[in-house]
Amino acid sequence: MSATLHRLAGTSPSLDPMIDLVAEDMAAVNRVIVDRMRSEIPLIPELAGHLIAGGGKRLRPMLTLAGARLLGYGGTRHHLLAAAVEFIHTATLLHDDVVDGSDLRRGKRTANIIWGNPASVLVGDFLFSRSFELMVEGGSLRALEILSNASAVIAEGEVNQLTAVRRIDLGEERYLDIIGAKTAALFAAACRIAAVVADRGEAEELALDSYGRNLGIAFQLVDDAIDYTSDSGTMGKDAGDDFREGKMTLPVILAYARGGEDERAFWRDAVSGRRAGDEEFAQAVALVRQSRAVDDTFARARHYGQLAIDSLAAFPGSAAKDSMIEAVEFAVARAY
């Protein structure tokens, strides 16, 4: 029988079991990260370190480490690949903040605000380059193929999202394509490479890919919903950023589809940028709530979370499996 969401009823899901499980491996990954951020150009480690040390949970590399534990891998090759995953993620964040013009990331001023857009883009490029060095050193062409493909898919997803900004006609299918590429692809790759380093077959690869991909979609759905339910202190970014940037996330797609003509006129003006102030954001929050668009976005997240958990059904019970199930519960529970 597969596990289900909220199996830990009465407790708050936490990443602590996974953090504790991979603590020793994560310390080794952190040493790789610190070592490979070094450069004779002082700005590079200064700017990269600002984001890497900025309070993120490093969920993606932890998933690589936990997946390796799930499969009983006892070597060290996954340390280099987990560090590569973190560098890919950090590079995409640096680039995203430039594209979005973001002011806050994890509650701190973004690197582009402190050092400027050119420095952020170039240091992001440096981290991408370092990630590929680490992939090569990892000694697996298969892992290199998986992570390099994920990097390309992420970039495609970001371009797809850029061309979809302020498009009121964006549908749910294209939205899911975007988040599947820009967010879920790296979750999937981070998990899948655990099967590669453990020398497991295609079935295990695909199961871990499915786990990571569905977790990533659930994670992004919750992120997009809480943009309309939380303040900047809770989110680590400015509340309403997606609204002001004209992003058609699922709460807006659903609220627009369910609205009357007055509501639809409001959304057309808001998404186009003509009505994007604080008062309009408050109105948008009211509309996504009264249309149950936020509730249904959270429900979609729970659905994908359950798919992630179901993907682990073939693996025997273990502390690693339990921690990976609870990581899904944690990702979804951020909504509450």
Score class of each variant (00 low, 15 high):
Leu8Asp: 13
Thr11Ser: 13
Ser14Cys: 08
Leu15Phe: 03
Met18Val: 08
Glu24Trp: 00
Asp25Trp: 07
Arg31Ser: 15
Val32Asn: 11
Leu43Ile: 15
Ala48Gly: 03
Gly54Thr: 03
Arg58Trp: 04
Leu65Thr: 03
Gly67Phe: 02
Tyr73Ile: 02
Ala82Ile: 08
Ala83Gly: 01
Ala91Arg: 04
Thr92Pro: 02
Leu104Cys: 02
Lys108Asp: 06
Lys108Gly: 03
Arg109Leu: 01
Ile114Thr: 14
Asn117Leu: 05
Asn117Gly: 11
Pro118Ala: 06
Leu122Tyr: 13
Asp125Pro: 09
Leu134Phe: 01
Met135His: 09
Val136Gln: 06
Ser148Tyr: 07
Ala150Leu: 04
Ala152Phe: 07
Leu162Ile: 14
Arg167Met: 05
Ala181Asp: 12
Thr183Phe: 03
Ile193Arg: 03
Ile193Met: 03
Ala198Asn: 08
Leu206Pro: 03
Tyr211Phe: 15
Gly216His: 00
Thr229Asn: 00
Thr234Arg: 08
Ala239Cys: 10
Met248Phe: 07
Leu254Ala: 14
Leu254Val: 15
Ala255Arg: 01
Ala255Asp: 15
Gly260Leu: 01
Arg264Ile: 01
Arg264Leu: 02
Phe266Leu: 10
Ala282Tyr: 05
Val288Ser: 07
Tyr304Met: 00
Ile309Gln: 07
Ala313Ser: 14
Ala313Met: 09
Ala314Tyr: 13
Asp322Pro: 10
Val328Ser: 02
Val328Tyr: 00
